[in-house]
Simulated scan of single mutants.
Amino acid sequence: MFCPECGTENPDSARFCGNCRHQLSGMTGGSVGSQDNAVVEVGSEKKTVSDGMKYGILAGSLIIPFIGLIMGIIYLAQGESEEKKDVGKLWLYGSIGIIVFYMIISGDF
Rank of each mutant, 00 (worst) to 15 (best):
F2S: 08
F2E: 14
P4T: 08
P4V: 09
E5Y: 11
G7Q: 09
T8Y: 12
P11L: 10
D12G: 09
A14N: 06
F16A: 06
C17A: 08
N19G: 05
C20P: 04
R21A: 14
H22W: 11
H22V: 06
L24Q: 01
L24A: 04
M27L: 13
M27K: 13
T28G: 15
G30K: 05
S31K: 12
Q35G: 06
Q35P: 01
N37I: 04
A38N: 02
V40T: 13
V40Q: 14
E45V: 05
K47F: 04
V49I: 15
V49E: 02
S50Q: 12
M53D: 07
A59V: 12
I63T: 10
I64R: 04
I67L: 15
L69H: 04
L69I: 13
M71Q: 04
M71P: 00
M71R: 00
G72A: 08
G72M: 02
G72E: 00
G72P: 00
I74C: 05
A77D: 08
A77R: 14
Q78L: 15
G79K: 01
G79M: 06
E80T: 12
E82V: 07
E83F: 02
K84I: 00
K85Q: 13
K85R: 15
D86I: 03
D86F: 03
G88N: 01
K89W: 14
L90H: 03
L92T: 00
L92S: 01
L92E: 00
G94N: 03
I96F: 06
I96D: 00
G97N: 10
I99N: 01
V100S: 09
F101K: 02
Y102H: 13
Y102T: 06
I105E: 08
I105G: 05
G107N: 12
D108N: 12
F109N: 10
F109T: 13
